[in-house]
């Protein structure tokens, strides 16, 4: 079984996001970039399945600018066998990414495609679902547990009401939740080995995919500042303030 894992390069989750002064987007210069956190879980799970002898190859793929190669390289350092970078400039929307992934799936013929449930930058949570539609494959989203069966997967999903367990036939798309596993650290020798693993570079345009954004972004702005809190002396005062000032009761 072959697993394709999609990873995205995003602003590191510890970095405080700054909105550009003119409201056209967020500041990405001089900002630390990392792998989208649930994508780390996706890679980890794929590698674990391979280590358990249930998969033969793990291929990491990223779509984006040249530097997204670092994200692929990181996936190689924790156990992916080889990488693919599909180069595209600027914002690449989920639809474009899923079309690219569709082309790569047709070429690579994996049995499973894993990715994070959503990216922490645009929070779209669409790519896996769109890819499932394009390929007409079953999908298991928000996976927090995956059991690999003969010709199917048993997947536990994190849903609003609790946990839902489903079975999907292979080939399938799985989008991974942070609870799926604890991603391993890349060891120094493995980082070195990863430097020698191949990363195939393809231009999105060569796949015949137009990555031009379809969504008009009108404005990006910071959330309103939270007002400073106050201490109240008594329950009466609290109730009075909730009634007259906050007007919530």
């Amino acid at each position: 079984m072959k697993i394709l894992v999609a990873v995205k390069r995003v602003i590191d989750y510890n970095v405080q996001i700054r909105v550009k002064e003119d409201g056209t987007g967020i500041v990405t210069e001089n900002v630390k970039m990392s792998t989208n956190p649930p994508d780390d879980n996706a890679i980890e799970e794929a590698v674990k399945i391979k280590e358990a002898g249930k998969a033969t190859e793990v291929v990491a793929i990223s779509v984006g600018e040249e530097k997204a190669q670092e994200t692929v390289r990181k996936a190689l350092a924790v156990g992916a066998d080889r990488g693919i970078l599909v180069k595209a400039e600027g914002t690449v929307e989920p639809l474009a990414v899923s079309k690219i992934l569709q082309k790569i799936v047709e070429k690579e013929k994996p049995d499973l495609v894993f990715m994070g449930k959503q990216a922490i930058d645009d929070d779209c949570n669409q790519t896996g679902q769109m890819l499932a539609a394009l390929l007409n494959w079953p999908q298991a989203t928000f996976a927090s547990k995956i059991d690999v069966k003969e010709k199917s997967l048993e997947v536990t999903r994190e849903v609003d009401e609790g946990l839902e367990t489903i079975e999907v036939n292979v080939p399938a798309i799985v989008t991974c939740d942070l609870r799926l596993n604890e991603p391993r650290y890349a060891s120094l020798p493995n980082i070195m080995k990863a430097k020698k693993k191949p990363i195939e570079q393809i231009n999105a345009s060569d796949l015949g995919i137009d990555t031009k954004p379809r969504i008009d972004q009108i404005k990006v702005e910071e959330p309103p500042k939270r007002k400073a809190g106050i201490k109240v002396a008594s329950v009466e005062e609290l109730v009075q303030k909730l009634k007259n000032e906050a007007k919530v009761i």
Binding site: E182, R184, Y185, S187, P189
Partner: peptide
């Protein structure tokens, strides 16, 4: 040691 434990190496 936690699950993802990775020992240090000697350089």
């Amino acid at each position: 040691k936690k699950d993802g434990f990775e020992p240090g190496i000697e350089l």
